[in-house]
């Protein structure tokens, strides 16, 4: 009996060690987000102190080398391109999810889903290259150089489409089968069952998915960097070139010093804030728990 008790003791000890090690790992992993934010803030402080937040809006233009730090054109460009991408991805992504969940025969649905999953893994730099080689010359026929808000929105829309489609399908799948059966029992045809029962029930999940897609589009860098043209001015048409916040960071980080570098960190902080808000809102829709 003593032998058993001894081994029990050593087991309790190893359990304790296991718990401590695993829990601290979880806390360390979660704390990385604070480390990221802390470093962004500490690098941003010089800019906020010496230049001040107001000048990011009131300065005449973005000429960091001659001390002009107006970020507005880039914020507008980021928002416009993101909006364009959502306008393209939302109807197509939701349709694709409805097709996959309710219309496609099982064998096709599986492969359709795999195609979409596959596309979500294609590097953004590859999408950018494709847009540059294939799409830009086509868009150029509408005017401009082809590197424009429209080109960037189209490709970005394609890139976030898998996010919309996969989260929407997850939301539709979690609608209880009995509800749909109830609709069918009331004599609803397929399209009304989807419109009146499935979509309203999945509304929160779909909205959450759109918010995640929005966060992804806001933060996307390589494709817009290669496709939007990168000229810092207020865009006046959809075929005009523009530079987003993310592209600006990627373009100037290489040579930025002192105050200029610090302003880039301020824009990074701004991006992370937008993304954190979208993700938290999406979390309330339950899309993140999927």
């Amino acid at each position: 009996m003593t032998k058993w008790s001894l081994s029990t003791l050593s087991r309790l000890k190893s359990d304790w060690l296991f718990t401590v090690v695993t829990r601290s790992s979880a806390c360390v992993a979660a704390a990385i987000v604070f480390l990221v934010v802390a470093f962004l803030i500490s690098e941003s402080i010089p800019a906020i102190r010496q230049i001040g937040v107001g000048r990011f809006i009131t300065d005449a233009s973005w000429h960091p080398l001659s001390d002009q730090f107006n970020l507005t054109p880039m914020i507008v460009a980021s928002l416009t391109i993101t909006l364009g991408a959502i306008l393209i991805a939302a109807p197509l992504g939701i349709s694709a999810a409805i097709y996959c969940q309710f219309y496609a025969p099982t064998a096709i649905a599986v492969w359709y889903r795999r195609l979409i999953e596959l596309l979500s893994g294609i590097p953004s730099v590859v999408f950018g290259l494709w847009g540059l080689v294939v799409l830009a010359p086509i868009v150029a026929r509408l005017g401009g150089s082809g590197q424009s808000i429209l080109t960037a929105s189209l490709v970005l829309g394609l890139m976030i489409l898998p996010t919309v489609a996969l989260t929407t399908q997850a939301a539709l799948r979690s609608v209880p089968g009995e509800w749909l059966a109830g609709g069918a029992a009331l004599g609803f045809c397929r399209s009304s069952t989807i419109r009146r029962i499935a979509l309203p029930a999945a509304r929160r999940g779909i909205l959450g998915g759109l918010l995640l897609a929005l966060a992804r589009a806001m933060g996307e860098t390589m494709a817009v960097l290669m496709l939007a043209g990168n000229v810092v001015e207020m865009p006046d048409s959809i075929v005009a070139p523009a530079r987003t916040l993310t592209a600006n960071i990627a373009l100037e980080m290489g040579y930025a010093t002192a105050g200029h570098r610090s302003v880039l960190f301020v824009s990074g902080l701004f991006l992370i804030a937008i993304v954190a808000v979208s993700v938290s809102l999406a979390g309330f829709g339950g899309a993140v728990d999927e």
Binding site: V33, V36, G219
Partner: peptide, 16 residues
Amino acid sequence: CLDVLAAVPSVVFGLF
């Protein structure tokens, strides 16, 4: 926290 970390834009990871 991990959800937010997962959504941090890659260029911001570059800055960090």
